[in-house]
Every structure is written in structure tokens, then in C-alpha cells.
Amino acid sequence: MKTKIEIRNLNVWFNKRQVIYDVNLKVPEQAITAVIGPSGCGKSTLLRAINRLHDLIPEAKVKGEVLLDGKDIYKEDPLVVRRKIGMVFQKPVPFPSMSIFENVAIGVKLNDLAKKERLEKIVERSLRMAALWEEVKDILESPATSLSVGQQQRLTIARTLALEPEVLLMDEPTSALDPVSMKKIEELIVNLKNDYTIVVVTHDMRQAARISDFTAFMYEGKIIEFNETSELFRNPKEEITEKYITGRIS
């Protein structure tokens, strides 16, 4: 399988406190890679390093390389990087005072990627991919805040997809949602893998087992084990991995 993102010797510090240690990881193209591990082990920090969100935090320092198709994203324009590598956060927060339509269209507008006429097509396509179109097609002009939380999460996925990214990063995308919405988003993620390379951080090992093709287990800032998901859960090579997946550490 082709590697889409290669992380090489990645280290991250916050105010001199190191939270990511020498991480190396090859994320395969058009597959779902799950990142699991106990709370505070650095999953979000790792994910945010992949689209340069740490640039915005003065106390954060990143060292190492993140190659997208062989090119180091830390040597490119961060705005372009973030467009190619989309990010969906744990808590869906629609953009303020914008309609559903505008929430999806805003990224395309900001980046001057399309003319007005095409915008409508892009919005519809993105909402369809995010499995939200049928529910909102008649209320596109309503404020996005009127949607349920589960719908809002699909909306944030749609707004990310509107930019036609190559990679989708998701940081616990279902942990704020009810079971029904969670199931919808999981189906959606699985459907998206034909077109995208997806990295999902999750607390929920069963979710990782359900949807991912590969799984990385992180512990105290390091990647302890990376393997095909079925293999990692069936035959963990490291003792600590086994302890985690059997619930003996959390």
C-alpha cells in the first residue's frame, strides 16, 4: 500500500515539556488509520502536528518531518497545507452567524477556489458526501446552530470536504455525540476512505476495531505499536499494548 503521509522523528514540546518523542509513522493512502491510547498520551498533539496547528500556539515547538507525498509540510505554506490536510475536531462548532450553506462554502470562498456558480455544486456535493444533504437541502439558509449536534458534526465534515482535501484528520469525531449520530459518522468515515486518507484519533477501542484498517497505539508520547487493526487487536506484540486493549491500563 502506498504511503500518503510519512512522519519522521517527530518531537513536540509545550513550554519545554516534551509530549511527543521521536514518532515515526507511515500513514497508508486511502485507508483509515486509527490512533488509540490513554488520555493525555499525545494523540491530539500528534494529529495537530500533521496540519501545523501548533504553529498557532506560541508555547509549542515541533521538530522533525511530516512528509505529504514525500514533501515536508513544514517547508510549505501552512495555509496550503491545512487546505490539503483537513481537520475535524471533537466538538462541532459551526461558524457564527452563518447559514448552513455559508458554513460549507466559507473555506472555498476564503481560498478563492471557485466562482459563485460552482459554489452551489460544491456545497451540495460536500453535504452529500457528509450524508447531510437530504436533511438540510430545504433549509440551507437557516442558521447552522439550529442543527443537532450530530448534524453539526457532519456539517463540519462537509465544510472540510468542500476544500477537496487529500487527507482527513479527525480528533475523536464522535465522542461528543449520541450513539445514533456516532453510527452515522462511522459509516460516513468508512465511505470516505475510497477517496481520502483518513486518520482518526479515538478513545474508543471498539470504534477503532470497527472502522479502521490500521491502528497505532500511543503511550506517553511514543508510538508503541503500529499494525493492521485486526492484527494489533488479535496479536499485540508489546505487553503494554495488550494491557491497554484488555483494559488493564486506561
Binding site: 496540519n51 491545512r82 463540519t156
Partner: peptide
Amino acid sequence: PTEIKEGIYAIGG
């Protein structure tokens, strides 16, 4: 909310 600011950065803003 940070989520809003980061959300805009995350779409290339």
C-alpha cells in the same frame, strides 16, 4: 471559542 478560531485556520484561513 478556540474551536471556532481553529476551525477557520483548519480550512486554510
